Simulated scan of single mutants.
Amino acid sequence: MKILVTGAAGFIGFHVTQALLRRGDDVVGFDVVNTYYDPAIKEARLRELEKAAAATGSRFQFIRANLADGQAVNACFQAHRFDRVIHLAAQAGVRYSLVNPHAYVESNLTGFTNILEACRHAAVPHLTYASTSSVYGANTAMPFSEHMATVHPLQFYAATKRANELMAHAYSHLFRLPTTGLRFFTVYGPWGRPDMALFLFTKNILEGKPIQVFNYGNHTRDFTYIDDIVEGVIRASDQIAQPNPDWDGRDPDPATSHAPWRIFNIGNNAPVKLTEYIAALEECLGKKAQMELLPLQAGDVPDTFADVSELERAVAYRPGTPVRVGVARFVEWYRQYYRV
C-alpha cells in the first residue's frame, strides 16, 4: 500500500513509518520538524527511515511542511493517491498546553481539519489518527473504557484531542469517511521524546542530578512500550472502520455510532506505580536516583489504566511488554545513541 504518515519525524510516527517500510509499504512522511524539542533527534530519525527504505526496497518520500498550511496538505494529496492515512502529527505535552495553547490550536485543530478535508476530497479508504488517554480527564473509575463519557478534560491538550474525535465523527457521518481514533497510554521506548519522564530521568540519574517526582511518586501509569503501540496502530489502520449496524440513535454509549467511526484504547492494561518505574530504571542504569518529591502538577491525573478489550476484539491484539523489559531496551538505546 501507499500510506501517508504525518508526524513521521516524531517518536511514534518514526516507529510506525519504519515498521511499514519493513513490511514493504511505500510511505510518504509529512512533518514540519519544529523546535518543540531538539530537532537533532528528529533529523536522526529521518536518516534512519532513509536507511530502512534502502534496506527493504520500499519507497520513502518526506515532505517538510506544516499541516496548518492547507495548500501544502492539498498539494501532497494531489501528488499521491493514498490507500491509508495515519495521522500522528500533533502538538503533544500536557504542561506545555498551559503556557502555549495557540500551538495546540494550530497543530491539533487546524492541522487535523486540513487532514480531514483532504481525506474527504481524495476519498481515502481509511483515516487512523492519534488521540490520548488524557481525554478521560476527571474520570476515576478504572480501567478507562471507551464506553465512558469523556466530557471533563483537565487540560487544553486533552480538550483538543477529544475535539479531534468529535470532528472525525462528523466527517464519518457526513461524508462516510472511515475513521479510527487511538487513545495512547504513556508511550515510552527507544527514540522517545526528550521532554518525557523516562528521558529526563535517565539523563539526570546518569549526570548525578536529582529527578523531579510529582505527586510524591504516587502516580500510577499504564506505561505502554512503543513496539506495542506500533502493532496496534498498524492493525487498526489495516482494518477499515465499519458502521455499527446495531446502533439505533438512542444508545448513549459514546463508543458506538451508525457512522464508520470507532475509538480504541492502546495501553498495556497493567498500571505501574511511578516509583516502580523509577526502580526499574535504577536497576538498568546501576545507579540510584536522587528524588525531589513534589505535589501533583496542574492538569495531571493521578492514575491511568487502559481497558483494551475493544482493541483485542477488533484486531486480535493486546499490548503486553513488561515495564522492566521496555525500560531496559530504552536504556540500551540511550547509551548507544548518546555514547554514555
Rank of each mutant, 00 (worst) to 15 (best):
Y96W: 09
D300G: 11
S97K: 07
P260C: 10
L4H: 09
V16C: 05
S237G: 14
A75W: 00
G232W: 13
T224R: 08
I12G: 11
P319A: 13
P190I: 02
D38Q: 11
T140E: 14
K273H: 14
T179P: 01
H102S: 12
T160Y: 04
A92I: 07
N215Q: 10
H152F: 09
E146G: 08
K209H: 14
R339P: 00
P322S: 09
T17L: 08
S131D: 06
F223P: 00
F305T: 01
D300Q: 15
A68W: 01
V99D: 12
Q61R: 15
N139C: 11
N269S: 15
D69S: 07
L166W: 09
L200H: 09
S145P: 06
A54V: 02
L182I: 14
P153R: 09
A236P: 06
N100M: 08
R176G: 00
L281V: 03
A141F: 05
I226Y: 02
L198S: 11
A163S: 15
L154V: 15
A52Y: 07
L294S: 12
D228S: 09
T186C: 11
L127C: 04
L154H: 01
K288L: 12
A163Y: 12
P178L: 03
Y136G: 01
M148G: 08
I3M: 04
D248S: 07
M148K: 10
T56P: 09
V331N: 08
A159P: 05
A123H: 14
V99W: 06
P178V: 00
Y225P: 05
Y216H: 13
T220S: 12
V32F: 10
L116Q: 04
P210N: 10
A130E: 04
C76K: 05
K288G: 07
A40P: 00
Q78H: 13
A54G: 15
P178R: 00
D31T: 07
P153V: 05
F199R: 05
N114P: 02
N66I: 00
T150Y: 00
L4D: 03
R23F: 06
V99K: 13
I278V: 14
T56M: 07
A289I: 02
Y338P: 00
Y334I: 03
A8L: 02
A55C: 00
G286L: 09
A298K: 15
A79R: 15
A8I: 06
A65P: 04
L285T: 06
A9G: 15
D253Y: 04
T304F: 08
L198I: 13
R313H: 13
P260T: 07
G249K: 10
P125F: 10
Q78V: 04
Q336D: 13
N204A: 15
S58G: 12
Q290H: 06
F112R: 07
E48H: 11
L4A: 10
A159K: 09
E283K: 15
R23G: 02
G24C: 06
A314F: 14
A163F: 13
V340C: 11
D228E: 11
C284H: 07
A75L: 08
H87S: 08
Q290N: 04
L109T: 13
H15D: 12
H173Y: 12
V301R: 13
P39S: 09
D238I: 01
A90F: 04
A75P: 01
A158C: 05
F305M: 01
F214H: 15
V327Y: 11
Y157L: 08
A314K: 03
A306V: 05
I205D: 11
A75I: 00
L46F: 02
Y225I: 03
